[in-house]
């Protein structure tokens, strides 16, 4: 048996699995995306060309959701990576000595995002939540965390607190993989730690930085669970992300074709972002 044939046989189960799990829904999404489909006509969609895409692109709520997702994805990705990088570099000596500290630092990541949303809904409630309670007790005042004026900042902070450990783990691995002799050589030459970080360590970690930024951006861009359970679509749709827009269009309004068209647009955007990130990563590696 040739290697090629062996590879094909070994890869077949995975390929079949992916085709079943991802391929079928993708084909269905494409069919519904170019059809006039409702729950009553799920099995007999009528071809409608690009009408759904035109409807989506003409819908102000779609653009509002796209702008929210873009802002949310970009801000949370930058914050998580900046914090994760700082923590990784600062805590690396501690982690080297006590490896178990990593387990504590990644606890927020283990909680399901939907549960995190529900938890904040309780914690931040003006009358039932401990945080406003103590702020009122100590300062006689508390911000309304989920009011229109603060809700965006609140969901950004919630997402950052949960997913910074992910960026931290990536950066810690990258930081620990930098050869120790490079640091020693720099130290022998009298290079100060700050300069060593900027000129040696950070450039070596740059490919990881790009990957982390990309992953966190995509995760933030398609955010759903924690925001939906915390504040829903928001007053006037102010916390409607792309995923929430698709969910509500599909299930709440029953406009299946339009929801699928929006999902395809989201997929294309993510795909283009992936291609761009790969290019940047390769460039950084060179």
């Amino acid at each position: 048996m040739t290697n090629r044939r062996e590879n094909a046989i070994l890869a077949a189960p995975l390929v079949l699995f992916l085709l079943a799990i991802l391929g079928f829904p993708t084909v269905l999404a494409l069919v519904y995306g170019v059809s006039d489909t409702s729950f009553q006509t799920l099995t007999s969609p009528e071809f409608s060309g690009l009408a759904n895409f035109r409807q989506v692109l003409a819908d102000p709520t779609f653009w509002q959701a796209a702008w929210f997702s873009l802002r949310f994805g970009a801000i949370t990705a930058v914050l998580q990576c900046a914090l994760g990088l700082a923590l990784a570099v600062y805590l690396a000596p501690l982690v080297r000595l006590h490896g178990w500290t990593v387990a504590i630092l990644i606890i927020p990541m283990i909680v399901a995002p939907a549960m995190m949303g529900l938890m904040y809904r309780l914690v931040l409630h003006e009358f039932a939540g401990p945080l406003p309670h103590y702020l009122y007790q100590w300062l006689g005042w508390s911000p309304a965390f989920l009011s229109p004026a603060h809700v965006f900042k609140t969901v950004v902070v919630a997402e950052t607190l949960q997913w910074t450990p992910f960026a931290f783990l990536l950066f810690l691995t990258a930081y620990q993989s930098i050869p120790e002799d490079l640091r020693e050589a720099a130290a022998v030459d009298g290079t100060r730690p700050w300069r060593r970080f900027w000129t040696i360590e950070l450039p070596l970690m740059l490919p990881t930085v790009w990957v982390a930024l990309f992953i966190r951006f995509i995760d933030g861009f398609r955010v759903f669970d924690n925001i939906y359970t915390l504040v829903g679509a928001g007053p006037g749709g102010s916390t409607t992300s792309m995923s929430i827009y698709i969910y509500e269009t599909f299930l709440r309004r029953g406009e299946i074709g339009k929801a699928m068209a929006a999902a395809i647009l989201l997929f294309v955007t993510a795909f283009l972002a992936l291609a761009l990130a790969q290019r940047l990563t390769r460039k950084a590696a060179r």
Partner: peptide, 8 residues
């Protein structure tokens, strides 16, 4: 007259 975050 209603909590500011009652929009949630």
């Amino acid at each position: 007259a209603t909590p500011p975050d009652s929009t949630s």
